[in-house]
């Protein structure tokens, strides 16, 4: 990878680190009722996936995207950069608490094979060089908000699934009441518009209606308002959920691409209240740029 990118990864990760960290002890270590346990009292993460009262798998819980190791990051970005970032790590937000796809949605691609169109490459280069100012206290969006150090919480009711992202304090609505995506999206939104349906035990979520302001990853891979995402959530057992996300944006990419990752259950944990503007000190620095 080119050095500019490396510098930018460092900068972005660093700004994540200073933008938000609240520890709220009352949220933690509550032994939730209904958690299957091993004879020694620990949560049994390989027990069967729980069911909601309507018989569907219950995806509710506090989840965290399975993080990459330092070695994975070194392979992708080079050892020197990774060592640099690690010296800056904020406790709980170290590099190895983040999914590889948060850093680059094309982590599985060889650089030459990334299907960016010229328009996307141009935006990407501008972001990587730091020419595009950081947006302070605005949503990370999909998928980044769910791939970083902070947990996400799923709350499933028969009519909808709500996802609370601690990382940027946003909430996402996924309708499961039978509706389909609207024919026309008049006002694009940061988190788009999501409709889900059950394909046997897999929740298939389709989303569209995005604005073009979020970045697909920390490096800055862009998307247009034409972005269409299909997510497949399958709770494999009590403690693990397989996620597959397919991104289709013909204006920016020559072909659809997908990422696959695992969500690990964090039993007895919760998402914290995260108010980015509170005690926020980044804005003044980023506005100067």
């Amino acid at each position: 990878m080119i050095p500019h990118q490396c510098r930018f990864v460092w900068f972005e990760l660093f700004s994540f680190a200073i933008s938000s960290m609240l520890v709220q002890a009352q949220w933690l270590n509550y032994p939730a009722p209904g958690t299957p346990r091993t004879p020694d009292g620990k949560p049994d993460l390989t027990a069967p996936a729980p069911r909601a009262m309507d018989g569907k798998p219950d995806l509710s819980g506090t989840w965290h995207a399975h993080p990459a190791s330092s070695e994975d990051f070194k392979r992708l970005f080079g050892a020197a950069v990774v060592d640099n970032i690690e010296t800056l790590s904020v406790p709980g937000m170290e590099l190895n608490t983040v999914s590889i796809y948060a850093a680059s949605i094309f982590a599985d691609f060889k650089p030459a094979e990334v299907p960016m169109r010229p328009a996307a490459a141009q935006i990407f280069r501008r972001r990587v060089s730091g020419a595009e100012p950081l947006q302070t206290c605005l949503p990370l969006g999909i998928p980044v908000a769910g791939l970083v150090s902070e947990a996400t919480k799923f709350i499933q009711s028969p009519q909808q699934l709500v996802i609370l992202y601690e990382s940027d304090g946003t909430h996402r609505q996924i309708y499961t009441d039978g509706r389909t995506l609207p024919k026309e999206i008049i006002q694009p939104a940061w988190l788009g518009y999501s409709a889900g349906r059950w394909d046997r035990d897999t929740l298939v979520v389709e989303s569209a209606g995005f604005n073009d302001k979020t970045w697909l990853d920390i490096l800055g891979h862009p998307h247009s308002e034409a972005l269409h995402i299909v997510e497949r959530y399958r709770r494999r057992d009590f403690g693990h959920m397989d996620v597959e996300m397919t991104f289709d944006d013909p204006e920016m990419y020559t072909q659809p691409f997908n990422i696959k990752y695992v969500l690990d259950l964090l039993p007895g944990s919760d998402v914290f209240e995260n108010i980015c503007n509170e005690n926020e000190k980044d804005r003044i620095h980023t506005e100067k740029k």
Partner: peptide, 10 residues
């Protein structure tokens, strides 16, 4: 949004 164990108000 009401689920059995948790209610969310957005």
């Amino acid at each position: 949004v009401q689920s059995p164990a948790l209610i969310v108000v957005i």
